[in-house]
């Protein structure tokens, strides 16, 4: 897991990558990528779960946004998207949640497909931000301080 993330840092995709062991033996990775604020990625070894925790805060206030995010994510398990974008359920299972209005994304890794899960997770996060840039610029301004103009 750490190696897979480190490769993105080495390629200059991430700015800064730090990790520490958190509660319950979970690994917490932090890096800056698509916004000014660092992103947190938690890996729970026991559950083999990779979670972008609170990736998108306060999405609950915009039902339409939440619906669109879910539609995009759910589509990745269907033939509606090109094969290279699909998430292979034999290698990772995708779970989305909006607990307390904050959107998180989890990939449960099957077998030893950790690198796959990291790659799919990051590409999905990129897709989610493309959606936000296209249709919800106000959300990016309010939640992440993107320029209003």
């Amino acid at each position: 897991m750490a190696r897979a993330l480190q490769r993105y840092a080495d390629r200059g995709v991430f700015r800064g990558l730090s990790s520490h062991r958190g509660r319950g033996g979970r690994f917490e990775f932090q890096f800056t990528w698509l916004m000014r604020q660092p992103m947190t990625l938690v890996y729970d070894e026991r559950a083999a779960a990779l979670t972008f925790r609170n990736l998108l805060p306060r999405v609950g206030s915009t039902a339409l946004l939440r619906e669109e995010l879910y539609e995009l994510i759910d589509g990745l398990s269907t033939r509606a998207v090109p094969a290279h974008k699909r998430i292979d359920g034999r290698r990772a299972r995708l779970i989305r949640s909006a607990r307390g209005g904050n959107f998180s994304l989890t990939l449960v890794v099957r077998g030893r497909h950790h690198e796959y899960a990291v790659r799919k997770g990051l590409n999905l996060v990129n897709d989610l931000f493309v959606l936000l840039h296209a249709s919800y610029p106000d959300y990016l301004v309010e939640q992440f301080g993107f320029p209003a103009e």
């Binding site: 700015r15 916004m35 590409n123 990129n126």
Partner: peptide, 29 residues
């Protein structure tokens, strides 16, 4: 626009004003 993130190789030609990472829609790979 929704296909851009699928590109696995981006050839920037004469892109004088460079975006930072994340400003173009291309994916991390």
């Amino acid at each position: 626009p929704t296909a851009l993130a699928s590109a696995d190789l981006v050839v920037l030609v004469g892109q004088h004003c460079m975006p930072t990472v994340g400003e173009f829609a291309f994916g991390p790979d």
